[in-house]
């Protein structure tokens, strides 16, 4: 969540939600959360586990552009 919230401050376009998975089982199920942290960007790009800043940024750009690669 740390990177996501810092990115939210860096760009007016970004919103960062931190969701307590156990408290919202239906929400978690909807996004097939099997392990945490699980990150979902624009309902298009998703990954599990913590990524370094560079890779997290790639995921964000991929969610917007539909291009790019992770890592």
């Amino acid at each position: 969540m740390r990177l996501a919230q810092h990115m939210a401050v860096a760009s007016d376009q970004i919103r960062a939600d931190c969701i307590e998975a156990n408290e919202f089982p239906e929400w978690s199920q909807q996004y097939r959360v099997m392990a945490v942290p699980k990150v979902v960007i624009n309902d298009r790009v998703q990954f599990e586990g913590a990524l370094p800043e560079r890779d997290f940024l790639s995921a964000v750009l991929r969610a917007v552009n539909g291009g790019g690669t992770l890592g």
Binding site: H6, E20, N22, V39, I41, N42, R54, L57
Partner: peptide, 27 residues
């Protein structure tokens, strides 16, 4: 002041459409 690299901040400054990041976590 986000703790992000200059490269990351520059790339994010170029965003022109909304990005909604959801982070599912547990305590």
């Amino acid at each position: 002041k986000p703790a992000l690299s200059q490269e990351t901040q520059a790339a994010l400054a170029g965003l022109r459409s909304p990005v909604h990041i959801k982070v599912f976590a547990t305590p």
